[in-house]
Simulated assay, not measured.
Amino acid sequence: MVRFKNRWLLVEFIPTSSDASILSIPDPVKSSPQTNFDGKQIYAALKQSILNHYGDVGWGSVGLSLTVKYYSPVTNICIIRVGRDHHKIARGGVTLLESIEGIKCIPHVIHVSGTIKHAQLAAIAHNREIIARYRAQAKAPVAYRDSYDSYLELSNQEIEALQD
């Protein structure tokens, strides 16, 4: 018996709007409504990108295996699962993505993994790095406890709860 092998893409969507509210430091409790995507919107934008650039053949090769497993509106990171045989088409579709729901963004593929565990570890490490950047921009002391601590704990639990 042969099992179905996947690739896991960890992607960060960086908003590029000139609107100051999008580029400001987000509040983890209530995220900015302009960047509040969900998995369905990312999936639809990714599907349209693959159809535009690779056509029906490209979408037919990745359509059944492509799923958005996780998205964080605070750090704008997303975990996408796709079949191993055609993961390059999915990565190309992500890279060529220009906007999601009319909001222009730059997709940055952070990590490609063969297992969900390594994608989870990379996502947790990247979340910590992003929160450290937010705290540095806010010039918060190192030992300062804020709402980002509770967000990190919650996001770690959500990411670790993901299953294949």
Rank of each mutant, 00 (worst) to 15 (best):
L121E: 13
A119L: 04
E129F: 12
A122Y: 09
H108C: 04
K139S: 10
K117H: 05
E101S: 13
S150T: 15
E129G: 11
L152W: 09
A143V: 04
A132C: 13
K104A: 07
N127A: 03
I106E: 08
R145K: 13
S150V: 15
Y148K: 06
I124M: 02
H108N: 14
A138N: 04
R135D: 04
R133C: 11
Y144G: 03
C105K: 01
Y151P: 13
I130G: 01
A143G: 03
K117P: 01
E129S: 14
I110R: 11
D149G: 13
A125C: 09
Y144A: 11
R145M: 11
S113Q: 06
T115Q: 04
H111P: 00
H118R: 10
H111W: 11
A125H: 11
T115R: 03
G114D: 07
A136S: 07
V109L: 10
L96N: 04
I130Y: 01
I103F: 07
G114C: 03
D146T: 05
E101G: 06
T115A: 02
H126A: 11
H108D: 06
I103Q: 12
I106Y: 08
I124N: 05
A140G: 01
H111V: 09
A140H: 03
I100P: 00
G102C: 05
V142I: 12
L97Y: 02
Y134R: 00
E129A: 14
S147I: 13
S150L: 15
K117M: 05
A125Y: 08
I124Q: 04
A143N: 09
S147G: 12
V142L: 12
S99A: 11
P107S: 00
K117A: 07
E98A: 07
D149H: 14
E101K: 08
E98P: 03
R128C: 12
R135P: 09
S147H: 14
L121T: 08
Q137T: 08
L152E: 10
I110F: 09
R128F: 10
Y134H: 00
L152I: 14
E98I: 06
I103K: 05
C105V: 06
A136R: 02
Y151S: 15
T115P: 00
A138Q: 07
A143W: 08
D146S: 06
K139C: 09
Y148E: 06
A122R: 07
K104T: 06
L121P: 01
E101W: 03
L97S: 02
I106V: 10
Q120F: 07
E98Q: 07
I103D: 02
L96K: 10
I124V: 12
H108V: 09
I106N: 10
I116Q: 01
Y151C: 14
K104C: 05
A122N: 08
A119W: 03
I110L: 15
E129V: 07
A132R: 13
R128H: 14
Y148M: 12
D146P: 06
D146M: 03
I110A: 06
I106S: 11
K117V: 06
R135M: 05
D146F: 02
P107M: 01
I116M: 08
R128A: 12
K104L: 04
I100N: 00
T115W: 00
Q120H: 09
D146I: 01
I110H: 12
S150Q: 15
P141R: 02
I100L: 02
T115Y: 00
A132K: 13
H108R: 14
H111N: 13
E129D: 10
